[in-house]
């Protein structure tokens, strides 16, 4: 008798878990199918200097409704009067997901770091 209750509990939990998965998929399917919207946020306060230069962490996120693949980003800044360009690639980014990257320059840039999108592939 006690056994049956445990079995019902396991079965109930299983069905709930599967329904949760199905529910997310259905909600996702009913949602709008807008384009990807990759964004980047630099964390200059967490920047650090290494033997190979200056490194700034950044968060790349996708605020759109579709996944983006092979996202290319280019960061530009002026270091010691010279324009420096660094690129960073993100393999794939699901909608609503984010990934941490780090961008390197030869030394800490003087002014702003400008980031622009090079492009991405659609799934």
């Amino acid at each position: 008798m006690k056994r049956n209750i445990v079995e019902w509990l396991v079965l109930g939990a299983s069905v709930l878990a599967i329904l949760a998965v199905v529910g997310v998929l259905v909600l996702e399917g009913l949602g709008a199918g807008g384009p990807p919207d990759p964004r980047i946020e630099l964390h200059r306060d967490q920047a650090r200097t290494s033997t190979l230069g200056w490194i700034v962490p950044a968060t790349v996120s996708n605020e759109g409704d579709t996944a983006a693949a092979r996202i290319g980003l280019e960061a530009m800044a002026t270091v010691d009067g010279q324009e420096e360009v660094s690129t960073v690639d993100v393999d794939f980014l699901a909608p609503g997901s984010e990934v941490e990257v780090e961008i390197g320059f030869s030394a800490e840039p003087e002014g702003e770091i400008e980031v622009r999108l090079l492009g991405y592939g659609l799934p």
Binding site: V24, L25, A94, S97, V99
Partner: peptide, 8 residues
Amino acid sequence: GASLAAIV
């Protein structure tokens, strides 16, 4: 960093 939909 993955969204709920991506995790599912």
